[in-house]
Nucleic acid binder design. Sequence first.
RNA 1: GGAGAGAUGGCCGAGUGGCUUAAGGCGCACGCCUGGAAAGCGUGUGGGCGGGCAACCGUCUCGAGGGUUCAAAUCCCUCUCUCUCCGCCA
Length: 420
Amino acid sequence: MLDMKLIRQNPEIVAEALRRRHSDIDLTKFQENDRLRRELLIEVEALKNKRNEFSRVIGERKRNKQNADELIAEMQVVSSRIKELDEQLQVCEATLNSLLLEIPNIPLPDVPEGIGEQDNVELRRWSEPRSFAFEPLAHWDLGEKLDILDFERGARLAGARFTVMKGAGALLERALVNFMLDLHTGKHGYREIFPPFLVNADAMTGTGQLPKFEEDLFKTTTGYYLIPTAEVPVTNLHREEILDDNDLPVCYAAYTACFRAEAGSYGKDTRGLIRQHQFNKVELVKLTRPEDSAAELEKLIADAEEVLQLLGLPYRVIILCTADLGFSSAKTYDIEVWFPQQGLYREISSCSSFTDFQARRAGIRYRSASGRTEYVHTINGSGLAVGRCLAAILENYQTEGGNVIIPEALRPYMGGKGII
RNA sequence: GGAGAGAUGGCCGAGUGGCUUAAGGCGCACGCCUGGAAAGCGUGUGGGCGGGCAACCGUCUCGAGGGUUCAAAUCCCUCUCUCUCCGCCA
């Protein structure tokens, strides 16, 4: 959520940001309601002031056994007017709030402007894709041949976009989770969190999934939502809190399963592990001082990249253009890992700064060194998506005989196993 | 799931309609005192919104939301959460 005062005082900044995003949101309805709200507030607060003062006088008279009938009669009129105005105010504020919740974040100045995916900019590549002396298999074919991925039985149990991992496949998935968590909590200094996988609507609103993106989420009959990413519970850990300056930055790493309805992605990535309703992810989340957030985002993506470096998987980093940027994000880097069978790089991590957008929605503040309470900046990124990582290992490390070599770094987590 | 008890400021805790602008204590900050410190004494101490250049003023905030009343921490209704006991359960 944007700062109301920014929209009020510098609407041209917000309008320009919306233009860069190619958003069709119109600010005039917001501005009208904002003006109305302040008019109502000024009137109703003056009346409440009067009511408070007169109540004091009435109380005094009653105690002294004096008559206060005319004052009470007068206050009846004032009170009913207050009630009217409060009702109008409530409607006005509800409108204002729902408008505010639908305005996306302002992209940072270094985000390239664009009209679609094709305008994202590649920043760097790490390592060279291996050249194969044979035709590499897709991970779904390889996984089925090795009997470690079972798409058919996944469909039997749940439906399309669900997979069963078996034997060495299940072990590899678990090894990746542990390897990533150990790296981030050990070398990189994150604190491990194991949060609930279901959250309430307030948490989803805090990080920006609600109210706009409800159709992407799974919801229980009892009103809970299944988390689409650990970002939701972990960022909301500190909802409605004021943190101490000394505690920043707060750095958390969390493994969770993630659940996505994948509405609107019919026909996309229908085979394999790339697009599942349920997948595993290790997520990195930071709460920082505003002045540190740019540097902390760079550190976070370096932490995520190191996972791929240690696994020896070639990747590239791109920065998303304004049109491809998520609703809550001010700046997003994607890490894309090489998939040899398709011959292209595919997203395996998305690292974003949300500036104060989520913090304002979730009420996450800190007391700065100067004593002011300010909103923190929130940052998060995948470190990494586990299923896609497993798929990348299968494809990049396959042998001509249809086996898979386990990267050195993972072997301690695989009971010393070197090959599947 | 059943029964009962609770939820008050950073923390503890008083408060059954107006004298509460939330008592008192602890903590914290600053000052006095001191060679320095402790103790002691004094002062201050949340957040949101609105107005104002500012100092400051107003308003809201006693788990949440409604209601009664001229007036609600206090009375009524609904909900949430916590604790205790019972039941069920990985």
